[in-house]
Design a protein around this nucleic acid. Structure first.
Length: 905
DNA sequence: TTTTTAACTTAGCATATGCTGG
DNA sequence: CCAGCATATGCTAAGTTAAAAA
């Protein structure tokens, strides 16, 4: 464990308030009120569907809908084969998945469907107690950020506070307690119901909140109102609300995507089962298909209903359902693949896979060519200076000096730890009695400048040369880029061994600056199929450390991390491989399963906020924070790692209770990214936190009776396979699904894309996905302002001229003193309209840019948002999928491309 | 139980690419 | 055609979680 706590304080001074701004800025936002999707969508949907039906793969899907998923047929050079594979694989995959789920379900038994309604009610009631509050939080904040509290801030900004201030709400605590139903003591929840419940929850919540939200007075954020509506929807459950929205930014970005080839193409395939079936123990495949659908439908329906409730009612649902039913598609593809635990199957066309296969087996045959090493060091002979004089260094010494020299213009030069670690390791290579003794007397600039010149040279090389170089490199690497897994060609992720360098740890990492030594074949263990030829060692005279034939793991090779020898660096398949795709899909299915249990889980932990057993109370509060704020589990860390925390490792000083019921969070999380947020919580939670803090130092663990394994063990009792991270996936995906369906109104393509980006941003904020502000940001902003001012000046001129023109007078001279063309009033009117529109667009772009300057949208898209939500939404709203997913994402998510338009998370 | 090991997912940053408007 | 950016990708650090070992 870490010992001290230094943490946060240091860093950024952030002002809290600042950030809110972003969101709020908003402007034009439109509240999502009205009916959600509405007409247009539905209409479209229908259209869409029909096409879908087509089976075959990719194309099918794509074409089908008007949407146009771009699926090209593929091309991908090499990949053709690959594509096929995918398809096949997918099928199998799906089947497998199904199986798994089923089993899972059985355990828990969540039922879905029908019951819902009733259940819901009860639940909701229960929830009230618990959930509601959560919502409330938002409310508070509401204004500003909204959501989840405004996690937004962090680093740089400030902000949040505002919102807080606003908060008055206390919210509902009411209930806290009691959920009627649930069983008293234990947390176990009973079964989960299905969707409907959600709705219920929501509703109630919303209502509650609404009140609050209003409260939020203050300034900021403006959009609160939105909350109301939304509330209804699920978000609330989470507690998040969202507010801002805003701007649509112009299409700009989006448009670009060319798309290109996607490899995906096909897929098709399967469908998976869903939870719903749960009950069925079955595993059969075909069956599963149906089951799946049904399940899906349910989900959808309910959801839609939910939505409706708040607002309108429901036709949509109908629409969706219908569609759902129809499409069946899928299936086909053949091939085989394997998979997972169960087995592998081999081919089989129909997919069938059997349950067989063995435990944990990940593949049957695996053929690959090993890894590629970085080229040996080439001495440049440029001499650095020591006490002003040139020094002769051996190639080995020069190599390390160069690693440092190259970093002269980075912030690491301001880190004493970096310098010390570097010097200690370099000294070992220099030898004890080397002339170079102190780093302060070293002058690396000659090497630095040499490096800069090299970079410049490369830049100048023109395209042809560059292309030639690139092709040569490709040629060298090609054999390492692919593997044959169960007979299918798959792409390898990182086949290049990491080159030597200086360790760049994030945050205040104790090991930053240490030399990461060169990895040699004798450091590497290769994993390959028993019957496959052992890859030839690419470095003459050397050999691999070890050869293994372990088909229960997916790595192709690994070596010990030179910085931390207890850890490993693995070579895995690329994200586009079916192996990764399958586990990705399973991840989302697990999160969807949580949907059926969430209500009960929330009820249970709410109840435990006041449990007499302190461990139970801590588990309850920790689970609440993970659910509501999307915190990470928080494993213990060693002293030789950066001092960061997650939920279970929060320190007393990281959470400050501000009466009556607000918690101020401030800590460094993964990657030393600061998490700063103020949240209104239910009174019992507030009191529990106060109590956990009493008698402890700031650096003591807030949850002293807890660790991640205890927490996960507990979660596992609530739902099969449930762990802390599932909540992040669940909350991210459910938020996207809800927002997309609530806020997509008609509008043109650009507007729809803006809706998506807005939802994406909300998720990024919830998950606290940040990015550093680009160096040129402020310059870019001022340039934008200048342009806007310039346009405004023009606008004024046009107005003046218009007034004069109407009186028959000629226009005034331009700023440059030259006379302008004498335009007629109509022309001037047009100019004015044009310029006004341009200004408005620029203002919107400016706001969006400022708003997103610290928000990273990509991380959630890659890791947390069920791609099927996006694909289905695109199909429903005729948005080309390439507007949302780039080439890599399309490849990574091939398994999701054939979802039915009616799919709901 | 607790600690350690192993395997895999999730993250931000640096760079390479590639649009776009002028 | 080019500058100025926004995006896409590569890279590898930093988490999570399950399971084995102590």
């Amino acid at each position: 464990m870490s010992s001290e706590v230094r943490s946060h304080s240091s860093q950024n001074s952030i002002s809290q308030k600042g950030k809110p701004v972003m969101s709020s800025k908003a402007s034009p936002v439109k509240s999502p009120i009205g009916s959600p999707q509405a007409s247009t969508s539905s209409a479209k949907l229908s259209a869409v569907k029909s096409p879908l039906a087509s089976p075959k793969a990719s194309t099918s899907s794509s074409k089908a809908s008007p949407v146009k998923l771009p699926v090209p047929n593929s091309k991908m050079s090499t990949s053709a084969a690959g594509q096929l594979k995918h398809l096949s694989q997918q099928n199998t995959t799906s089947a497998i998945i199904k199986e798994e789920k089923q089993s899972i379900n059985s355990a828990a038994e969540p039922h879905c469907d029908s019951d819902d309604s009733e259940d819901d009610k009860p639940l909701s009631a229960r929830l009230f107690a618990g959930l509601p509050k959560g919502n409330s939080n938002h409310a508070n904040k509401g204004p500003s950020t909204s959501s989840p509290g405004s996690p937004m801030l962090q680093k740089p900004k400030v902000k949040s506070e505002d919102s807080d201030a606003g908060l008055p709400k206390g919210n509902s605590n009411h209930a806290n307690k009691g959920p009627s139903t649930s069983s008293p003591g234990s947390p176990m929840l009973q079964k989960p119901k299905v969707k409907s419940e959600d709705s219920d929850d929501e509703i109630p919540l919303s209502s509650k909140f609404q009140v609050k939200s209003n409260a939020g007075p203050s300034t900021n954020k403006s959009h609160e109102f939105n909350d109301n509506k939304p509330m209804a929807s699920k978000l609330q459950q989470n507690g998040y609300t969202m507010k801002d929205n805003q701007l649509k930014k112009s299409s700009t970005v989006l448009n670009k995507r060319p798309l290109g080839e996607v490899k995906s193409s096909s897929h098709s395939s399967f469908k998976k089962p869903k939870i719903g079936d749960g009950s069925l123990p079955i595993t059969g495949k075909q069956v599963s298909v149906k089951a799946e659908k049904e399940a899906d439908d349910y989900d959808h329906v309910p959801i839609s209903e939910r939505l409706k409730k708040p607002i309108s009612s429901g036709n949509k649902s109908l629409a969706t359902k219908q569609k759902a039913t129809k499409v069946v598609s899928s299936s086909f593809k053949k091939s085989s693949k394997n998979k997972k635990q169960v087995k592998k199957s081999m081919y089989s066309k129909s997919s069938k896979m059997l349950p067989s296969s063995g435990e944990g087996q990940k593949w049957t045959t695996l053929v690959h060519n090993g890894v590629i090493f970085p080229p040996p060091y080439k001495p440049h002979g440029v001499k650095m200076l020591y006490k002003g004089k040139p020094v002769d260094l051996t190639p080995e010494q020069e190599e390390v000096a160069t690693m440092y020299a190259v970093m002269l213009d980075t912030d690491y030069m301001n880190k004493p730890t970096f310098k010390e670690n570097f010097m200690n390791d370099w000294r070992k290579i220099l030898g004890k009695n080397h002339v170079i003794q102190k780093l302060e007397d070293c002058d690396f600039t000659p090497i630095y400048e040499w490096h800069q010149r090299e970079k410049e040279k490369k830049k100048q090389m023109s395209s042809e040369e560059k292309k030639a170089l690139r092709e040569e490199k490709l040629k060298q690497e090609e054999k390492y880029m692919w593997v044959s897994l169960d007979g299918v060609k798959e792409k390898v992720g990182n086949f290049r061994v990491e080159p030597p360098g200086l360790f760049r740890g994030r945050g205040e990492h104790p090991k930053m600056g240490k030399l990461k030594k060169r990895i040699r074949p004798s450091d590497i263990t290769i994993n390959i199929g028993k019957d496959a030829p052992i890859p030839e060692c690419p470095i003459a005279g050397e050999s691999w450390k070890e050869i293994r034939h372990d088909n229960t793991v997916t790595w192709l090779a690994f070596w010990n991390d030179p910085i931390n020898p207890k850890e490993f660096k693995y070579v895995f398949l690329a994200a586009s491989s079916s192996l990764k795709g399958q586990s990705d899909k399973e991840k989302y299915e697990k999160a969807r399963l949580l949907k059926d249990y969430i209500q009960g889980i929330r009820t249970a932990y709410t109840k435990d906020f006041t449990n007499k057993d302190i461990t139970r109370r801590q588990i309850a509060v920790a689970t609440y924070l993970i659910d509501k704020l999307a915190l990470r589990a928080g494993n213990e860390k060693d002293d030789d790692e950066a001092d960061t925390v997650g939920c279970c490792t929060l320190k007393v000083e990281n959470v400050e209770p501000v009466p009556p019921n607000i918690l101020k969070f401030d800590f460094l999380g993964k990657d030393s990214i600061r998490y700063q947020n103020e949240v209104e919580v239910e009174l019992p939670v507030f009191k529990a936190i106060q109590q956990f803090r009493t008698g402890k130092k700031g650096s003591d663990d807030l949850f002293d009776k807890l660790d991640t394994s205890k927490l996960n063990a507990h979660l596992k009792e609530l739902m099969p396979g449930l762990t802390a991270k599932v909540f992040r996936t669940y909350n991210a995906s459910i938020t996207l699904d809800d927002m997309l369906n609530r806020e997509t109104k008609g509008g043109d393509l650009a507007e729809k894309v803006v809706v998506y980006q807005h939802a994406n941003k909300e998720v990024a904020i919830i998950c606290n996905h940040q990015r550093t502000v680009s160096k040129s940001h402020s310059a870019q902003m001022s340039r934008l302002n200048e342009k806007i001012d310039e346009l405004k000046g023009m606008l004024d001129e046009f107005k003046t001229d218009l007034a004069r023109a109407k009186k028959g007078k000629p226009p005034l001279k331009g700023a440059d003193g030259k006379p302008k063309k004498n335009l007629n009033p109509e022309a001037l009117e047009r100019k004015i309209a044009q310029t006004t529109a341009k200004i408005e667009k620029m203002e919107r772009d400016k706001e969006t840019k400022e708003d997103l300057k610290t928000v990273a949208l990509g991380t959630s898209k890659i890791n947390y948002l069920d791609p099927r939500i996006t694909v289905a939404w695109c199909k429903r709203h005729e948005v080309p999928i390439e507007k949302i997913f780039n080439k890599s994402l399309l490849a990574k998510f091939t398994w999701a491309m054939d979802v039915e338009p009616s799919y709901r998370f």
